[in-house]
Write a protein that binds this DNA or RNA. Structure first.
Lengths: 124, 124, 124, 124
DNA sequence: GTGGTCTAGACCACT
DNA sequence: GTGGTCTAGACCACG
């Protein structure tokens, strides 16, 4: 299982982990019932603390994306497509709202902002 | 001088203040040489701490938008239109980059993301 | 001998096993002297580990419900009807007490809680 | 503000804290906007670690019961009555379901179980 | 001063 | 072996 984090990023490591798992569930790389590697293994491989991994797992569990069974590890929860889409939309729309508030104050029009989005998306 | 902040917003208060001043410089409401009200006055009127205002002023000064002269307070710096545009673009493109990284991981296409932007901008 | 466990249940597997045996003693399906199948057989048939089965047997023995005789496996202990009733009551009253403490804190009245019990019991 | 935990209880300390706050919101002792004491103060007064308090606060925030603002502390979130009732019901019905599964296996009838509830509730 | 995040190390329950 | 919980101590951002 492929996982990676950037400890220097301004985004909290546990948040990065959350997003990694989340996106793999969205993309279908991870499916209901698939096991997650033990938190200690993940921690060791990524060079981070076990608590950081657990914090990420906690958040995933709170959103119903994984299930935990003491002694037998964690696995992807049975998630319905609707809930998944809802979470996916929220993950983007929340930060987008903040961004739009800022942009509006700086006089960005809808078209100018969309041009920025296109620029940034095609850039790489 | 009109200034306002929302203490409940997820955006730090000092950042909101920064953006208020910045946007007024962009729009032309504030011009080179215009004085800023004393820190204590701003703090009192907005019901926030002086340190918060000072932090905002510091950030503005670091970006060359205001100048401080001991004894005579702060005022808008001589503005270079190009520099201003650069800051304006940066103010939007930095958070936009993070957003796009997240969105990409979640499988958003350029068109889907732009649809979200349109939705959110027309919403209110 | 009929035994089953749900590995996805929040109740520990060894506890489910305990309850299975216990309830069959209560109902009379199992009587004093009846032999229990070997641990390895149970583990294989249920697809669980032998240690899990051993833990359940240990708990049953601690409560005097089964007896172990080296070399000849385990069997149902001579049952004392009163002791059985006591265990039966305890099995329900202990978790019930915790539940009632929580419910009280949340302002549940006796009648409201009983309504919940009826709802949940008739649900399925 | 009154808060207390039993470190010896089988219920995790952070869970106890969650329930304390939750029940005070339900009962109206705590209202939208009311500030919570600083986590370090709570930790010191209860003789527990700050992380334990934060874990409780995290759970409360995940359920939308409190809001956090760095630098200015945490306070009770604007919660609508419906959501509150939903959380209240869930807090009881989830453990109740497990209990009923056990009770059924032990041959408890609806009436016998309800008698137990009455006994336990009137006991103290 | 506040809270958010991360680390290292420990204990207990479950498989 | 697994995960859950808790502690102590540290650094950074915000007010």
């Amino acid at each position: 299982m492929r996982l990676s984090v950037l400890p220097t990023s301004p985004i909290p490591v546990y948040r990065q982990l959350y997003e990694e798992i989340f996106s793999q569930v969205i993309s279908g790389e991870l499916k209901s019932g698939d096991p997650l590697p033990p938190i200690r293994t993940v921690a060791k491989e990524l060079g981070i603390g076990v608590i950081t991994v657990r914090t990420a797992w906690d958040a995933l569990e709170a959103d119903g994306l994984i299930v935990t069974r003491a002694g037998s590890g964690c696995s992807i929860a049975p998630v319905d497509r609707e809930r998944l889409d809802e979470l996916r939309r929220e993950a983007v729309s929340e930060p987008l709202k903040s961004l739009i508030v800022s942009a509006r104050k700086l006089g960005f029009t809808e078209e100018e902002l969309i041009r920025c989005v296109r620029d940034e998306m095609t850039r790489k």
